[in-house]
Amino acid sequence: MAAEGNAIDALSQFALTPVLGPVGRAIGFSQSNLHMVIVAGLIIALLTYGMRARAVIPGRLQATAEMLYEFVRNLVVGQVGEEGKRFFPFVFTLFTFVLFGNMFGLLPYAFTFTSHIAVTFALAAIVFVLITVVGLAIHGKHWFSYFFPEGAPIVLAPLIIPIEIISYLSRPVSLSVRLFANMVAGHVMLKVFATFVVMLGSAGALGIAGSTAPLAINIALVGFEVLVAFLQAYVFAILTSIYLHDAVHLH
């Protein structure tokens, strides 16, 4: 990507740098983690500051907090059912963490921690461990019947069981790669077109006129990225809910 004499450098925005000086360096605290702390603070602030009035008729901030709460609750209860309520805090944490991370990362100078495959894979691994533990805790040995659907001909077992196991194991991979790839692609596109604007703009009057085209594309891209930021958080949360449904109900 770093073509044209290193003019376009779309990937350095993803590089980790330690913050907090030597302390951060010593404890491996990067700007990615700083943004996680900020995002967590924003979520807690929205829920505590927004709900401080505890008003019957909510104000704007309280309505936002309540909408977020009811949106995630309906998502979890709709997918998992009433017994899914105990997973609601987890899915809420996951959804808001990813959503706020995606959105906050769109601000200038901000870092998007969801553009790191390690971060998204860690989140997906938490989900994977959770659904496996929940499934085993609820169904015991019976949980393993998940890998061989009832009513399937026994002859096909050597074929079906490996496929089911692979599909189960690929869940955290697809979950994490989807979010990671969407975030990286969006930020690379923004960076590339922004670099075009600067490069064309420095090429005289004609260049300034020509740079309006990538600028217009970038404006449209920002709107598109807001959509993707919400959509990917939603997909992450709803897939988690679907997996929880499978763990609770086995198919």
Binding site: P18, G28, M36, P89
Partner: peptide, 25 residues
């Protein structure tokens, strides 16, 4: 910094989950 990022992610995510599930939600 990569391993630090993940360790801190688990700590921050766990703390966020704890605060949300016990106080905020």
């Amino acid at each position: 910094l990569m391993i630090g990022q993940i360790v801190w992610l688990l700590i921050i995510f766990g703390a966020l989950y704890y605060i949300l599930s016990t106080y905020a939600l």
